[in-house]
Every structure is written in structure tokens, then in C-alpha cells.
Write a protein that binds this DNA or RNA. Sequence first.
DNA 1: CCGATTACAGAATCGCAAAAATGTAATCAA
DNA 2: TTGATTACATTTTTGCGATTCTGTAATCGG
Lengths: 196, 196
Amino acid sequence: MPRTGLSPEEARQRAVEIAVVRIRENGFVKLRLADVAREMGVSHAALYGHFRDKAALLDAVTGHWLREARARTAVICAGSAPAAERIEEWFVTRYRIKSARALSDPEIFYGFNDATESERPVIRVYMQQMRRDLSGLLSEAGLGGEAEATLLEEALASFLHPALIGAGPKPEREDALRRLLRVLLAGLAASREGGT
Amino acid sequence: MPRTGLSPEEARQRAVEIAVVRIRENGFVKLRLADVAREMGVSHAALYGHFRDKAALLDAVTGHWLREARARTAVICAGSAPAAERIEEWFVTRYRIKSARALSDPEIFYGFNDATESERPVIRVYMQQMRRDLSGLLSEAGLGGEAEATLLEEALASFLHPALIGAGPKPEREDALRRLLRVLLAGLAASREGGT
DNA sequence: CCGATTACAGAATCGCAAAAATGTAATCAA
DNA sequence: TTGATTACATTTTTGCGATTCTGTAATCGG
């Protein structure tokens, strides 16, 4: 009966906000659409006007979280330091953000991990954006493009994949990441010289 | 009353054999000590004379499986081909064995994955052995030692870690592994020249 | 003494009925 | 027409007693 007074876009945002709070409180797997709907002041069926199903709302939560994370790495791409330095900074920042969040926001992180395991489109899109960002840095550094970005992404999975990254940033892990990355960049540089 | 007629060592082996069959049939998580004991013709309590607890039996199963896997990579270390080739062969073989087994023996593989997640000592020991084997190959190739072996192990987690490896060997994954490994070896060689 | 047994306490799992949540359809109001 | 509602079918979870398993202790036999 009484209209919500929110635009579709606002309603979506509001639902995601509420879901985030509920997930932090009760856990990712225990989120109930009924709770979100009640807190919005609508019937649970109304949510289906904004999200195809529960998975879509959960994806929206994950997507929101990933966009926040990307915002913090994207500024590095636009920096003025030498490209090689920015590449290292870019990866280290990703490591720090994810490991910190695995500790401070474990339930949302669980959702991220879950979406990754089940290869949800929201993850594919995020990975594509990250690959493009990295690809840009690599070509600035004269070290390659998309293919090399994919290669680096795979090589650093130990430090970035949600299933392998530990909870809480660890200096020794960060050092190991830097060492590995330098070997990789040296290897790409060498391949480039030899293989041209 | 009636003694088993098996030496302690034989009894352990027999229990592991039976457990492997039962796990393949009923699944890793559903293994019952009672079933293993019954099939051995003893009471379930007798098993506690051979294994501290159920986890120890499960570890023995995983350890057995890992020793089999290692036997197939160890021969490569002793081969006569150039060290660089043997390194590539060594990693590719590991990838093939694991991905094949994830498909053909999923329940035992599940146990391996589980033991990895919970960082059981049996996994630590296995990793140490593999690192030592690789370390030997690397020093033969003049590319480093333990530290570099650790670095390669981390860099190739995408292709070897049970949580990330897919079920069933895929040629394109094998190619990606080879490409990444070559970049890494080139990088190690370059670091070695520059950093000596 | 060694290896196995029976007996038993505590923990984990099973089965199933009741309750709740998800998703769909028909409908209603601004 | 759009966005929401109520009603309802279908899954999924929950609660909980009964059962089964795990692990320990005391004991037995060769």
C-alpha cells in the first residue's frame, strides 16, 4: 500500500547497506531476506522487484565490497612514480586490503571467498577490471599487456586468492610477495629482450 | 582373545588399505573406525593401539597417498636431462598427478585438501620433502637453493594447491604453468647475474 | 608384557516432524 | 504502468530425541 518513496536505485543501495550490517552481525550464510525487507519497511516479496533472487543480493554485497577495494588500488595506477614501483605498490596494496579485511570483516570476506569458489560473474567482472588496470601499468613499464597481467595474477595467487591469503597482514608475507614480484618482473624483462 | 597374527607395522598398513577403500566408497567425512575395525576382524578399540585417534589414521591415509605421488616425481630429480628441463618436467608432472587424482579419486583428494587447510604435520613434512627435491634441481641448474624453491612453490600455487587446482588435467593449464615457470626461471637467472 | 577385549562416558550424527524462508502468481493502488 | 501487497507452493532450516561413534579405562589371555 504505502509506497517506499525510494527510487529503484536508492532501494537497491539501501538493501545492500542493510544486508551488509546483517551479515556482519549474523554471518553471511544466515542472512534472511525477510530481515532485510522488514528493516526497509516492505514485504519480503518486494525485494524480488530489485533482485532476481537472494544470490543476486549477495552478489550486490560482494560487488559493493569489491568496488570499494578497487577504488583504493585504482589511484595507484594514476600515480606519477615509475611504473615498476607502482606495480609493486599496486600488488602490495591489494595484499594489505584483502588480508586486513579477512581479519576485520570476516563474514563479508567469507562471501567474497564463496563467490570466488562458485565463479560468480561478479568475480569475473572484478578480475577483468583488475587485469585491465594491471595491464595498463605493465605496458607503461614496457613489460607486456593482458597476457602478462594474467600471468602475474596467477603467480601471486598465494598472496591474493581469498582461499590462500591469511587473516591479518603479515610483514613477512608482504616481503615474500615483493621478492616474488621482482623475480617475475625480471623474468618478464628478460623474456622481452630475448624473445623480440 | 584370538590374536590378529599381524605385526604392528602390517596392522597399520592393513588399516590404511581398508580405510582407503572405505573412503572411496562412502566418502572421506563418513569414514567410521568401526567399519575399518570390523573389516580387520578386531574391535574398534584395538585400532587405538595403532593410531592415536581417528585423525591419525586419516593422516596415515593422506601420507600414503602423498608418498605415492612423490615417488613419481622423485625419479625425475635423478634423471639425466638438463636441470632446467627436469625442473619443468617435475612441476608439470606434479600438476598432472594432482589434477588427475582430483578427478579420479575425489574423496581421497578431499582428504588431502582438508589436511592442507588445517595445516596438518603430514602436509608440512610432504612440502618439506618436495622443497628439498626442488632445491636440489635448482642448485644443479645454478639457480638457487631453498629460498628459491620456496619462491617457486608459492608462485605455482595456482597450479598445485589443492584448493585451486581444477579436477582433470587441462592442456591449456599445463601450457600456462610452463609459461609462468619459464618467466620465473628467467627471473631467477637474471637476479642471480645482477645480484652476485 | 603385549595386544586385544569389554564396558562405558561424552560427542557427533541421524531421522523426522514442525517451523521458517525462498521464490512465484495473482492482485491492488497511486 | 509501476511498485508493492497478500497468498501460496516449494525448499531449507531448526529442534530434538534416539542412535551411533569416538575415545578411555579397567581387564583378560597367551
